[in-house]
Design a protein around this nucleic acid. Structure first.
Lengths: 200, 200
DNA sequence: CCGGTTACAAGTCAAGTGTATTGTAAAACC
DNA sequence: GGTTTTACAATACACTTGACTTGTAACCGG
């Protein structure tokens, strides 16, 4: 056979091409042929690495989630140890919003994925689990911060968690350039500052 | 010619069918033939009312925006006159979230539309204008409430406006059943209560 | 060195897409 | 009452799509 090839590597390269296509042409534009062209491979080769379009999309999504987690982890590494929960939340939120090219690609992938998941039970389960996981992580953070006295004890951890997650609602505003990235960051800072403020 | 037909009425009927299709099968599933089937008309008839698929989608979106505005107006009519800004915001937010079938259909239409708009300059301009309009309306409300002393004067109207709009970020959480409708409403109430609370 | 496996290339296929064309019945209008 | 419009039906067209099949060169393992 020809030189043995690292499948994972190839798949990731194709996933990157897929991101680029989705970023530039949208989810429906991500046809097998278009992704192959963007990746600089033939349709046959692409099909050698992904048995179906669905398999390709699923892989690309999981890989995007990994990369986002990596970006967050890298951001957290730059903080004091242990980091202040406010800083943690700030970084998590900032990485989930389309504020730089990498995050934008992930964000668009995610949006398309969620939209698709609404009508596909399998994807729905998968996407639901992912989001629930994320929510659980944030909730843990909030509860810890309350226990540490960093957040006023009157705050309901469930509601505060949901409100934090809702801040990803900046995404469409940013994408359509209704608000500037600085405005989104300022709003997040303002919100977190109030959340972590001392009670009266 | 056969009995003269109310074009607007026909178009709206088709738009309703389109919503149903988008709601159940997603944006890409909204093919001319599928919408025609859902509307109970022939492909030829549908083409008689919409010159192209793009025209159909545009009409359906504008109509959805009108209907959402109607729902909000109906909600506002049930309030004291003049209504308290908090109540106004509560109703606006509640109608923008997928909390009941009508709002859900509009919400999904809107999500798909925004996603599509990212790669279509014409749609982008249109969607951007719509969102900017909405933002301006909310901002006016906030500034008024500050002027009336209902919101603490330290609050920055710009940031507060953005934060209000960000609360539409509950949408994916609701759609994927990560949180319950009551939780979203509770969070919104909590948030608005704090926004309108007296300063210390 | 050779059978078997891997890595692709290229072509084929059926299904589905939006759009354009053509035909026709019916009612409005002068 | 003839003519012109309107409202549709039906079909055809040119493409694109994901999937599948077949062919073939390359290399490893025995």
């Amino acid at each position: 056979m020809p030189k043995l090839v690292d499948h994972q590597e190839r798949r990731e390269a194709i996933a990157h091409a897929l991101w680029r296509v989705v970023d530039q042409q949208g989810w429906p534009g991500a046809t097998l042929r278009e992704v192959a062209r963007e990746a600089g491979v033939s349709l046959g080769q692409l099909q050698h690495y992904f048995a179906s379009r669905a398999a390709m999309l699923t892989f690309a999504m999981e890989y995007a989630a990994e990369r986002t987690a990596d970006r967050v982890a890298r951001g957290l590494a730059g903080l004091d140890q242990p980091p202040h929960p406010l800083e943690v939340l700030r970084i998590v939120l900032a990485e989930m919003l389309p504020l730089h090219p990498d995050a934008r690609a992930s964000s668009r992938m995610n949006a398309a994925y969620v939209l698709e998941a609404l009508h596909d039970p399998e994807l729905r389960k998968r996407a639901g689990l992912g989001l629930r996981d994320g929510r659980a992580t944030v909730e843990r953070l909030i509860r810890q911060a309350i226990a540490q006295g960093l957040i006023a004890p009157e705050r309901d951890p469930d509601i505060e968690t949901d409100l934090i997650l809702a801040l990803t609602g900046f995404t469409p505003l940013l994408e359509l350039e209704v608000i500037e990235p600085e405005a989104a960051l300022a709003a997040i800072d303002q919100y977190l500052d109030r959340l972590f403020a001392e009670g009266p």
